[in-house]
Computed example of a mutant assay.
Amino acid sequence: MAIYDSLINNPNSRDKAMVWLWAQVFDIPETDPHVEDDVVACLQAMRSEIDLLSSKLKSRGVSDHLLHPGLPRLRNVASPTYLNTPWNNHRDEQSRVENRIILLWATWALQDENEQDLDSDELAALRSELDSLEVSLRNVDMPTYLYDFVLRQISVIRSALRISRVRGVAPIKEALRQVVGNCVVERDHVEAESKAASENARSVMARAGDLIKKTAEYADRFEKIRKAGEGAVGLAKTVGPILLAWVQG
């Protein structure tokens, strides 16, 4: 619902290309070097979430015709096909009152599954640190294996942070589990290569480990808020020991 409101209520957007309007909706800076990739990733996640929303409502006995025309319209305008078209081409159809009514009703019907919005400032800080880390990684002399390994892990985190604007904390948790699995499987090789790496290379690895841990701590805090402190996973406690070898270099 928040995404729809941000789309509809965006000021001075009539002639703006959809790619830049979506960038504002998803809080992606226009100066971000990954802006178009981030917008496409968010739109794909959004369309998947709309499909999931429809499936959940239907599983509760909601007739398909009650979801029309609002959900199909929103899913359609979220197509990457329209990224270079002006918002003015879509504004009238998307602004119709029946769209909002359907979305409000769907939000109410699934209120027991609604998640609190993630902290946008903290997400922005993580993305900024990720950008800085990637620059450092590309400029340091590091063994090829270690370079590829670290780049793969931060790429997984970057992808998760992209779509967390749409899917909440779930993709971050999935990404961290993938990173932990990679670290466990490749631990011996990473440790052997890191011993022969330069001090600067080990410093970059330590920064990568610290960023991954910060991401896990962020996910933990959100999970504790969502579950009122009960049954939180404690991802940071899992990630920390796995990344210890990085920090020790």
Rank of each mutant, 00 (worst) to 15 (best):
L71F: 12
L211H: 00
S59V: 01
K227Y: 03
G240D: 15
G249W: 01
T238W: 03
V77T: 04
L176E: 01
K16Q: 08
H34E: 13
R47F: 00
N89C: 09
V97D: 13
A124W: 08
S120T: 12
R226V: 04
S120D: 05
I102V: 14
L7M: 13
N12P: 05
N114T: 12
A45N: 02
V180C: 09
W20F: 14
K213G: 02
E122R: 13
T144E: 15
N114A: 15
G229H: 09
V239W: 02
L243C: 12
A216M: 10
I28L: 10
I154P: 04
E98S: 06
A2N: 08
I3E: 01
L118D: 02
G234E: 03
K56R: 13
L176V: 07
V25T: 09
Q248K: 14
E30T: 12
R177H: 14
S155A: 14
V19P: 04
S59R: 14
E199P: 04
V180S: 10
Q111D: 10
F149G: 02
A197D: 08
L126A: 01
L74A: 05
R100C: 07
S13E: 04
A106Y: 06
N88C: 06
S194P: 00
A206V: 07
A196C: 04
I3L: 13
R75G: 10
L66K: 00
E186N: 14
G181N: 09
I172E: 02
T85I: 06
V239K: 03
R75A: 15
R187A: 14
V166T: 07
D220Q: 11
E230A: 15
E129I: 02
A125D: 09
R158F: 05
K56H: 10
L130F: 04
M205W: 05
E191W: 08
R138W: 07
A2T: 01
N99D: 02
E122A: 14
D112E: 13
G240W: 00
N99F: 03
E129Y: 00
I242K: 11
Y147Q: 11
P241Q: 06
K58R: 15
D119W: 00
S95F: 04
V25F: 05
M142A: 06
D92P: 01
D121G: 12
S54H: 01
D37R: 15
V247H: 11
A125M: 09
L66Q: 00
D64A: 14
V135K: 12
V40S: 02
S128Y: 04
L67P: 03
K195L: 15
S55E: 14
D141S: 13
D119A: 05
I101V: 13
V233T: 15
E186H: 11
L104Y: 08
E174G: 06
A78F: 08
R73N: 11
V233P: 05
H90V: 03
